[in-house]
Amino acid sequence: MGGLKPSLITFILTLLIVLFNVLVSQGLGLALGAILMEVKQATTLASVTMLVFLLAGGYYIQHIPAFIAWLKYITFSHYCYKLLVGVQYSETEVYECELGAHWKVLDFPAIYYLGIDNKGWDVFALAVMLVGYRLLAYVALRLGQPH
């Protein structure tokens, strides 16, 4: 219904990326919960953090002001979005936008701004966040225990 590639490999890669995103966001939730140890505070901070991550990730806003542009590099939603777009489109792919007119996918401003190259770095960044958030939760729990 969305006009995505009807390929089994693309479908499986999309599922794996979404699962990876869920695991990373779960790690962030665990870390915030372990640091604050109070449900209301953790829920509030998690909601605000997720909203900032989604806005800075590049899906809703393409032209982020320069003073907060660095935020997209610490958000897992940015890397997940890049991977999902990169699975659907390639740099050499073209699409038909008018009768008989074909344009390269990279000519579309949102995809050009996002960049669909360096998929390996995106997976690496998500893997670092996956381990880092869980390690942060572990450290917070170890330091928060009474001795």
Rank of each mutant, 00 (worst) to 15 (best):
Q88H: 13
A110I: 09
W121V: 15
V94Q: 00
Y95V: 06
V128P: 07
V128N: 15
K119I: 05
D107L: 03
D122H: 04
Y95E: 08
G132C: 11
V123F: 08
L130M: 15
Y89A: 06
E91R: 03
P109M: 01
A125K: 06
A125T: 14
G132S: 12
G132D: 10
D107N: 12
E98L: 11
D117I: 08
Y133N: 07
D122A: 14
C97H: 01
F124C: 15
P109V: 10
V94A: 02
E98R: 08
K104H: 04
G115Q: 09
W103Q: 13
P109A: 12
E93Y: 00
V128M: 14
R134I: 04
L114P: 11
P109G: 02
A101I: 09
V131G: 08
N118E: 14
W103H: 12
L99V: 15
I116A: 04
A110N: 13
H102A: 00
E96I: 12
L114H: 06
A127E: 07
V128T: 13
T92K: 01
C97K: 01
V94E: 04
K119S: 10
E98H: 09
N118C: 08
M129W: 03
M129T: 06
G120Y: 13
Q88L: 08
L99Q: 09
V94N: 09
G120W: 12
N118K: 12
V128C: 11
D107V: 07
Y113N: 10
V131N: 08
E96N: 05
E93H: 01
D122P: 14
K104F: 00
H102L: 02
A127P: 07
A110F: 02
T92S: 04
C97W: 00
V128F: 11
W121Y: 09
A127C: 12
A125R: 04
L114D: 08
Y112N: 10
V105A: 05
A110E: 04
I111P: 02
Y95Q: 07
G100E: 02
G100V: 07
L99G: 09
V128K: 12
Y112P: 10
T92P: 01
W103V: 11
L126A: 03
F108Q: 03
H102Q: 06
A101E: 13
W121T: 15
L99F: 00
G115T: 13
L130Q: 04
W103M: 11
T92N: 05
Y95R: 06
P109D: 04
D117P: 03
I116D: 01
V94M: 03
E93L: 06
I111G: 00
E96P: 00
S90Y: 03
Y95L: 06
W103G: 02
I116Q: 05
Y133K: 10
L114V: 12
Y89V: 05
C97V: 06
A110T: 12
S90I: 11
Y113A: 14
F124N: 15
D122K: 10
A110Y: 02
Q88W: 02
